[in-house]
């Protein structure tokens, strides 16, 4: 299909669409009401629940922090706490920024640059979270082993079963991360390309 052929086809389609008007006054005015399932809001709702869940766990650790009675368990506790508090807070802030993004007074170029930048930041944060999840897997295991079972994760006698469970967990995180890196990588690089084109 040549470009000229595309243009002719497009123009024919436009003519046909002209003949099949289907919006009524009521449908149009219904669309102007902010009652529809807004994607940003849906996403933010999920993230808000996720964040609340993280904050609750963080609160649980804080209440029991005195049980972390060695310096290394305390370090694990602090790292886990930071992860549970900082990451969801940053995610919600970035999502909020995207949601409040004003498209009305912007040209296509400005809207594209602003949105791609916000999206890139969100993706970078999510990518960093994947890296961090490797570390958190260890620190959180140590913290919860102590708080729930009163066991020192680093001094436990482990049998084959425990090592197998751990190997499985590492493999699981590895595959999930690899999948995450690949998909995030594609999206960030496409955002990057568009920004390079425009700036």
């Amino acid at each position: 299909m040549e470009i000229e052929e595309m243009q002719a086809l497009w123009s024919e389609m436009s003519d046909r669409l002209e003949q099949q008007k289907k919006l009524t006054n009521e449908i149009i005015m219904n669309m102007t009401q902010e009652r529809y399932s807004n994607k940003f809001r849906t996403l933010s709702t999920y993230e808000t629940f996720g964040a609340l869940f993280c904050f609750l766990i963080a609160l649980g650790i804080l209440v029991n922090i005195s049980k972390l009675d060695t310096w290394y368990l305390m370090i694990c506790g602090i790292i886990t706490l930071l992860f549970l508090i900082v990451l969801p807070t940053l995610t919600l802030r970035l999502l909020g920024r995207i949601r409040r993004f004003n498209i009305i007074d912007k040209s296509y170029k400005e809207a594209l640059i602003g949105f791609q930048k916000a999206k890139k930041n969100l993706l970078i944060l999510q990518k960093s979270a994947i890296y961090a999840s490797f570390v958190i897997m260890f620190t959180a295991s140590a913290v919860f082993a102590k708080i729930i079972g009163d066991k020192d994760f680093f001094l436990i006698d482990r049998g084959i079963k425990e090592y197998l469970v751990f190997a499985f967990a590492i493999a699981f995180v590895f595959f999930i991360s690899r999948w995450g890196f690949r998909s995030y990588g594609k999206v960030t690089s496409s955002a990057e390309n568009v920004l390079n084109e425009l700036e």
């Binding site: 046909r16 099949q20 289907k22 994607k39 498209i103």
Partner: peptide
């Protein structure tokens, strides 16, 4: 601008109607 700043909805498996027709009616 609205089109380019929308976030893609996550794919709902088996729940989407493919765009089989461009001209709807």
């Amino acid at each position: 601008n609205t089109a380019l700043t929308r976030l893609k909805k996550s794919k709902r498996m088996g729940n989407t109607v493919p765009m089989d027709k461009v001209i709807m009616q």
